[in-house]
Write a protein that binds this DNA or RNA. Structure first.
Lengths: 113, 113
DNA sequence: CGGTATCCCTCTAGATACTG
DNA sequence: CAGTATCTAGAGGGATACCG
């Protein structure tokens, strides 16, 4: 499938390539979350970046945003049906990334000995 | 396989996340290339970025750099055996990215009509 | 041929403060 | 609760020039 000059690998990197986007995606794969929940689940993210990344993912059609008109306001973010097509992609990336990290750690231990 | 707080998806994005890295990878999957060949194959890349990205990929063990001590100098870049483990990952990403681009184009055409 | 070195600019992300 | 606005720092990348 890699047969074009403009490789769409870049597309995936753009969609997933914000600092917190993989983490957000991973949390939403587990289950839908409120804004505040995501803030707690991803300790170091700022409100600004969380909001911005969620809006990016929403614009790509990956995340659904549901507003409940209550007081206090309640907003739920969830993986859309389309967003679920990203799960197998994320799994493959995750597997290679985990193996790669493991190998790099082993290299570090070798050089330390 | 997505079952940890620190999702290694980020690792893949870091490894492949330079502006020209997917393109470089794609060219090296096709066949080994000299520095100058890559410059021609990737029209808009600067020498600086090509060099830098190649060094990044080399450090990650994905690309092999072979220097032939001749005059004029000759350097060949090729995908390492380890680097080949990235091919299936790139294929999955490529497939999703292509489908995503296609869908976004269709949306644009709809709104234009 | 196959690079480095330097300068500059833009874009992302963080900190902080404020709001419906 | 769920954001937006503003300012700033730092990394990534481009242009240009030079080198073994």
């Amino acid at each position: 499938m890699i047969h074009q000059r403009e490789c769409p690998v870049e597309t995936v990197i753009q969609v997933l390539g914000g600092k917190w986007k993989p983490m957000i995606l991973w949390q939403l794969i587990a289950s839908k979350q409120r804004f505040n929940d995501l803030e707690k689940l991803i300790p170091d993210v700022s409100q600004k970046m969380l909001s911005q990344h969620l809006r990016d993912l929403e614009r790509e059609g990956i995340v659904d945003r549901t507003v409940y008109p209550s007081v206090p306001p309640k907003v739920e973010y969830s993986l859309s049906e389309y967003g679920k097509t990203l799960i197998p992609v994320a799994e493959v990336m995750c597997a290679w990334g985990a193996a790669h990290n493991k190998q790099k750690n082993e290299e570090k231990e070798e050089s330390a000995s």
